[in-house]
């Protein structure tokens, strides 16, 4: 009899826990749907049943490019993963602020612009702060300028505002030294513009210069939108950048973090700690939160078991880094592409 009672109790508990689990899922989804900035603190169920409020920590490392990452199993810190994470944040109502750590010399124009516009969209919903690591130049700065605040170390290298496009002129080597001639059949006279098989004629150079100028103006306008015309009410120190200063220094030169702060290209000197303090204050101000400190959650970098797994798998298969390709200048690796990059 005792055995039967225990068996019935255990089965009953299992069935009951299934019902509680289903009920919990219903509550979680319902309270998540109804959540708005005004009623976060009033909802008792919210903290219990849905993801808690947090600051998303993202990182951007290396060249901004859509190229496949070296590691087959993880693309942590790449521009692609940053882009994916930003899209996810737009749908995640538990994220109350975005903190991005940038260590990049820039990269392709299209991807830099895509990330910039995603950040501007996020900025309308929540505060965005960028902290610059060793380098945040060109495309790296293009992305950073969409943030509400930029933090940099005194020795960080930033700036390099400009566009670059490179192509090889190998016609002398190929024709005179190796005796190789290219046969080109084309539909229009500019179809093989900047071809490595011949010298660049002035007409083509003017056309490409026009492209560069246009893309350069897009860069300057992005900084004007992101920083010069910036208008927020966050109670956090910010530097003022005037349009005239911007135009004067947007000639491709590189600044240290300290110089950039004086000119207004970054807001404050400091690192991840200072940036985290700032984003916390801004998030609390924006969403009227009373929590002491919002947790910082890594969004586009593997952590814990994931990191261990990816690390082990990578070392197991051996890194297949193409060393020769690593030595090439970015302009050659991304030949015929417009680049916001510091060479």
């Amino acid at each position: 009899m005792k055995a039967r009672i225990i068996s019935l109790t255990l089965i009953g508990l299992c069935v009951l826990s299934i019902l509680v689990g289903i009920l919990h899922t219903f509550i979680a989804i319902r309270s998540h749907d109804e959540e708005t900035p005004e009623n976060i603190e009033q909802s008792i169920l919210w903290d219990f049943s849905a993801g808690e409020n947090k600051i998303a920590l993202l990182s951007l490392n290396g060249v901004i490019s859509s190229e496949q990452p070296e590691n087959l199993f993880s693309d942590a810190g790449s521009a692609e993963s940053l882009q994916k994470a930003l899209r996810k944040i737009l749908k995640d109502s538990s994220v109350k602020g975005v903190l991005i750590k940038i260590n990049s010399q820039g990269g392709t124009v299209g991807l830099s612009q895509e990330i910039n516009s995603l950040l501007l969209r996020i900025r309308k919903k929540m505060p965005v702060v960028v902290t610059m690591s060793d380098l945040a130049a060109s495309g790296g700065y293009y992305i950073a300028c969409a943030a509400d605040r930029i933090y940099a170390q005194p020795g960080t290298l930033t700036g390099s505002i400009g566009v670059i496009m490179q192509s090889l002129d190998a016609h002398e080597l190929l024709t005179n030294k190796l005796g190789i001639r290219a046969n080109t059949i084309k539909s229009g006279k500019f179809k093989d513009i900047a071809s490595p098989y011949r010298a660049l004629p002035p007409e083509e150079r003017a056309l490409l210069q026009n492209l560069i100028n246009n893309t350069y103006n897009q860069f300057v306008n992005a900084i004007i939108t992101g920083r010069v015309k910036r208008n927020d009410e966050y109670n956090i120190a910010r530097a003022k950048l005037s349009e005239s200063t911007l135009r004067k220094y947007a000639d491709g030169r590189v600044f240290t973090g300290e110089q950039a702060k004086k000119l207004g290209f970054v807001d404050e000197l400091g690192g991840l700690y200072e940036a985290q303090q700032a984003i916390n204050k801004m998030a609390k101000q924006k969403f009227k939160l009373s929590a002491k400190e919002l947790p910082l959650v890594q969004y586009n970098a593997p952590t814990g078991i994931e990191n261990l797994l990816f690390g082990v798998t990578e070392s197991f298969f051996g890194g297949s880094k193409d060393v020769t390709r690593e030595l090439l200048p970015a302009g050659v690796k991304h030949s015929h592409q417009l680049l916001y990059i510091w060479e």
Binding site: I11, C14, V15, S17, G21, H24, F48, S49
Partner: peptide, 14 residues
């Protein structure tokens, strides 16, 4: 395996 049902409730405690 039936005890997996109560186990899943632990997920609510972060």
């Amino acid at each position: 395996w039936l005890f997996l049902a109560p186990t899943q409730l632990f997920k609510v405690w972060d």
